[in-house]
Design a protein around this nucleic acid. Structure first.
Length: 717
DNA sequence: GTAGGGTTAG
């Protein structure tokens, strides 16, 4: 402030001094140049302090201003106190605002609104509602500003009943025509999943604004109905309502959810046309959209455009990487964020944990878990569910259980993660027992809980239990989905009940999908049922023509039945479609370092030692009377085909490397990208006994714990 | 002084 102030000793000297002191204290910036005489003659303290508050640069100045108010006897100016309350920005600010409020004798509606807004803005929604009910008890009647604030709190808390009550008040108080209030109602109902009701309010609105439309669109988008959201959007366009940037954000989310890259790109075009491409919030949406649709590298270009990414942008990129299998990139970014001293939130941490789970490294999993235990996230139910899943997928069901037992807040997702974890490791009984405990605890199962249970049953060969659970689903009002049907087919098929599995498929109320036919084909391979297997394969080829796995399965089925000409035909078919078999790969973790091996791999520096150990192993196996299941390989096949049909030697290489790189007795942890084959499975069992080692193998479906010549899967996989 | 958005787990 530039003061042209030659202090006139005769005019309000005390105020003049105060003015000087306060303004210099606060470093006020103002373009106003005061003429001293004029200023002091027309001095209005309320206007003066109001301008002081508005122009206050640092929020800490507010305390000082309040002190001045007290000194000037202005502490009862509702106008000024309301202004102060509105300025509270952080947690300390809220406490301070509340003190100001409590100190004020009879707050008017403006001050009540201010304190409610203050709580609502900082996500203290319960406090916001509490203040609203106290406002009513104080007989202060609400105005048009009160309702949107309170409705926002109800939306955030999903407090449906409270919100309905407020809707009643809105009606009684004649705010039917207030577009702000009505938009608040649309948004409230939509967020609470009451889409019908949101529609009713929306339809009654005489002048719908872009906010009204966006409230409804985002309501559908957030409630898992992206298609409906997009329908409303196109309706809006037909009415010639132009979207603004928030509307585009909602529409991008909808396209992201249905992974419709093409239409997502067209919205990107709109963004560019409207000149909004450097808007940070749209960059976040575009990052998320391209990342979720698999265009991770392109998504990264948006992320890189922002010099200082905010938390949500970090999260969008990290979770985008993690979800698409770019675990290393996700963790790299996570580490980068931490080293830059940027505080992650539970969403970031959850995505990081997901990445660790994909890496399959127990060492890394331990690092992540240690990190979490040092933070407040160790109480977060999302984080704990992810940790349980991570430890289960990294081979330690024991550590998963420790997290589970420690978690105070156990919701259905957390229970399901543990149930699924047991299932993956073939602990079917533990899985079912845990389900009992979950019911005891009063937690209601959902569809995913049953996927976990059925997975557990199929991995442990518990046919009757699985069957019974499948029929119990409906008792909980859960309609079986494809995954459940596929589990049952797997359950029956693996035990050799192929006819029952097939008739089960025929009686399904919905069209059987890829996973169902896949389960049948795989069962046919195990039990060498060529006719049914061919039928299942046909269905698969028409539903999912470019998936290599199905062709390999059929080829393996033919090979197991020694139908070499048909094996060759499948080869031709694959070549025609330009498909290559996925290369088998086994990864072993030694001292926290992951080492990958492929069939016939000689790239490792210790390759000669590894092959020496391999020969040593083969000799010991032979001495122990192990005969490879070679009868199905025989003639006609080249080396590659032998590998594919019978055994993927990468697993054996990883074991050999593990044996020479660790001290006796150390458990070996191996992850494969294909299913365990019969031959390797039998060999690994025996190796565990001969070498006195525990060997844990994670294949694409489950875990095998080999110990003393036996496997935890009981030879069901 | 009021309303709409983007990022997480099984």
């Amino acid at each position: 402030m530039v003061l042209n102030l030659s202090l006139p000793g005769n005019v309000f000297p005390a105020r003049a001094f105060k003015f000087l002191r306060v303004s210099s204290l606060l470093g006020i910036h103002s373009n106003t140049c005061f003429d001293s005489d004029h200023f002091f003659c027309s001095f209005n303290p309320v206007t003066f302090y109001a301008s002081l508050i508005d122009n206050s640069v640092h929020k800490s100045h507010l305390n000082q201003i309040h002190a001045q108010l007290l000194a000037s006897g202005l502490q009862y100016s509702g106008f000024l106190i309301t202004k102060l309350v509105n300025c509270s920005l952080n947690l300390a600010g809220i406490h301070y605002a509340r003190k100001l409020f409590d100190f004020f004798p009879e707050p008017d509606v403006f001050l009540w609104n201010a304190i409610i807004r203050c709580y609502s803005r900082h996500s203290f929604f319960n406090d916001a509602l509490e203040m609203y009910s106290r406002m009513q008890m104080a007989w202060v009647s609400h105005d048009g500003f009160t309702f949107p604030l309170v409705l926002k709190a109800c939306s955030a808390l999903l407090a449906l009943d409270v919100g309905r009550g407020i809707h009643g008040q809105v009606f009684r108080c004649g705010f039917e025509g207030d577009v702000f209030v009505q938009n608040g109602l649309v948004s409230f109902y939509a967020k609470c999943g009451q889409i019908q009701q949101a529609n009713v309010v929306f339809d009654r609105l005489s002048n719908k604004t872009i906010v009204s439309w966006t409230s409804l669109i985002s309501g559908y988008a957030q409630n898992g109905e992206p298609v409906e959201a997009l329908r409303i959007f196109s309706q809006m366009r037909k009415m010639n309502v132009n979207p603004d940037w928030i509307a585009l954000v909602s529409v991008l989310k909808a396209y992201t959810d249905i992974e419709d890259l093409e239409h997502g790109k067209s919205i990107h075009g709109c963004v560019i046309k409207m000149g909004l491409e450097s808007e940070i919030d749209l960059l976040i949406s575009l990052t998320a959209m391209y990342a979720k649709c698999g265009q991770v590298k392109f998504a990264r270009t948006f992320f890189d455009q922002v010099d200082v990414p905010n938390l949500i942008l970090w999260n969008a990129m990290i979770s985008g990487y993690a979800k698409n299998g770019y675990a290393e990139e996700a963790l790299e970014l996570f580490r980068q964020m931490i080293t830059q001293n940027f505080r992650p939130d539970s969403i970031t941490v959850t995505s990081g944990i997901l990445a660790c789970a994909q890496m399959g490294s127990l060492e890394l999993a331990r690092w992540m878990s240690d990190y979490v235990s040092r933070t407040e996230f160790s109480k977060d139910v999302f984080v704990n569910s992810a940790l349980i899943d991570m430890f289960a997928k990294c081979g330690s069901i024991h550590l998963a259980r420790i997290i589970f037992d420690r978690a105070l807040d156990k919701d259905v997702v957390l229970w399901s993660a543990m149930i699924m974890g047991y299932g993956l490791h073939g602990h079917g009984k533990e899985s079912i027992d845990l389900f009992g405990a979950m019911k005891q605890a009063g937690v209601c199962p959902n569809d995913v809980t049953f996927v976990g249970l059925l997975t557990a049953c199929k991995n442990s060969g518990l046919v009757e239990e699985g069957w019974e659970l499948f029929y119990h689903m409906r008792d909980y009002g859960i309609e079986p989905r494809h995954q459940h049907y596929a589990c049952v087919v797997d359950l029956l098929g693996r035990k050799g009940y192929l006819d029952q599995a097939y008739s089960f498929i025929r009686n399904m109320p919905t069209q059987p999908g890829i996973s169902v036919w896949g389960a049948l084909l795989s069962a046919c391979k195990i039990h060498r049922n060529v006719t049914l297997g061919e039928y299942a394969a046909e269905q698969l080829f028409s539903l999912d023509p470019y998936n290599t796995g199905h062709y390999v399965q059929l080829s393996n089925l033919y090979a197991s039945a020694r139908l070499w000409d048909r094996v060759a035909k499948v080869r031709v078919l694959m070549r025609e479609k330009g498909l290559n078999k996925d290369t088998g790969q086994s990864v072993i973790e030694i001292n926290g370092k992951l080492q990958a091996f492929q069939f016939g791999d000689k790239s490792h520096p210790r390759s000669s030692e590894i092959y020496e150990e391999l020969e040593n192993l083969e000799r010991k196996l032979k001495e122990a009377g192990f005969s490879p299941h070679k009868e199905s390989v025989l003639h006609d096949l080249n080396d590659e085909e032998i590998e594919e049909t019978l055994c993927n030697h990468s697993e054996r290489l990883a074991i050999a490397y593990g044996l020479i790189s660790t001290s006796p007795g150390t458990t070996l942890m191996i992850t494969k990208n294909l299913r365990a084959c019969v031959n390797c499975h039998a060999a690994t069992k025996l190796i565990s006994k001969l070498m006195n080692r525990e060997i844990v193998v994670r294949d694409t479906n489950r875990f095998h714990h080999f110990k003393d010549g036996l496997c935890s899967c009981g030879d069901y996989w």
